[in-house]
């Protein structure tokens, strides 16, 4: 029967109410997990705090595995859900830029909103930066319009690209994530011994 809105189970008027409710839940989880602090977030790159890795990868594997079960029980029609289109070149370049922005800014867009909510000026400045960045992008768009639209592979899934069934990916991600969770537990302990000034 799902997804509910595309299948007409929920009238479109409720769309924005649902958006706010889901957003509140999203913001709550982000903040409560500690993503409103940029030093918590970047800890993952220096080995002193792996909260990002833990929350993010737990979420990915839970959602992946859950989606497969939803599909199996017939609750959701996987053919009707939105699959992010893949633009190979632009996505790789964009992600490298985002990675650099991530290590400099210490936030990603969603977490910066929650940082503003609890009064972090750096979160506010980051969001202003986001705004400026997108503005710069939009204004200079004609310069790289061709590149922006290049490498379009369509709305492809991992299965479409590799021919391997989705459950294998779910299993592989779960394996990698769980191994990472156990591995980082020890790394974190060792790194934290040498850092005094950071309050965890």
């Amino acid at each position: 029967m799902g997804p509910l809105i595309p299948n007409g189970f929920i009238p479109g008027d409720w769309n924005f109410v649902i958006a706010i409710l889901l957003g509140i839940a999203f913001g709550f989880i982000l903040e409560a997990s500690g993503f409103s602090s940029s030093r918590n977030i970047t800890g993952v790159f220096y080995g002193y705090n792996f909260v990002v890795l833990r929350v993010f990868f737990t979420a990915v594997i839970v959602a992946m595995v859950g989606l497969l079960y939803f599909d199996y029980f017939g609750w959701i029609d996987l053919a009707k859900i939105f699959i992010l289109p893949t633009y190979l070149g632009p996505m790789l370049v964009g992600s490298v830029i985002m990675g650099l922005g991530f290590i400099l800014g210490g936030f990603c867009p969603g977490t910066s909103f929650t940082a503003i909510a609890i009064g972090k000026i750096d979160g506010l400045v980051f969001t202003v930066g986001l705004y400026l960045g997108i503005f710069i992008f939009a204004e200079s768009f004609p310069l790289f319009a061709d590149f922006y639209n290049s490498g379009n592979m369509g709305n492809v899934t991992l299965t479409d690209v590799t021919g391997i069934a989705a459950p294998w990916f779910a299993l592989a991600f779960t394996f990698i994530a769980l191994a990472a969770f156990w591995g980082t537990m020890f790394i974190e302990k060792r790194v934290r011994k040498n850092i005094k000034e950071y309050k965890f």
């Binding site: 594997i61 595995v65 497969l68 079960y69 599909d71 199996y72 299965t159 069934a165 989705a166 459950p167 294998w168 779910a170 299993l171 779960t174 394996f175 769980l178 969770f181 156990w182």
Partner: peptide, 20 residues
Amino acid sequence: LTILMLVLATGTLFVNKTIK
């Protein structure tokens, strides 16, 4: 929890028999 997650993930291999 690790074991539970592994079992659930492995389970998807057996439940998803939708042949494409």
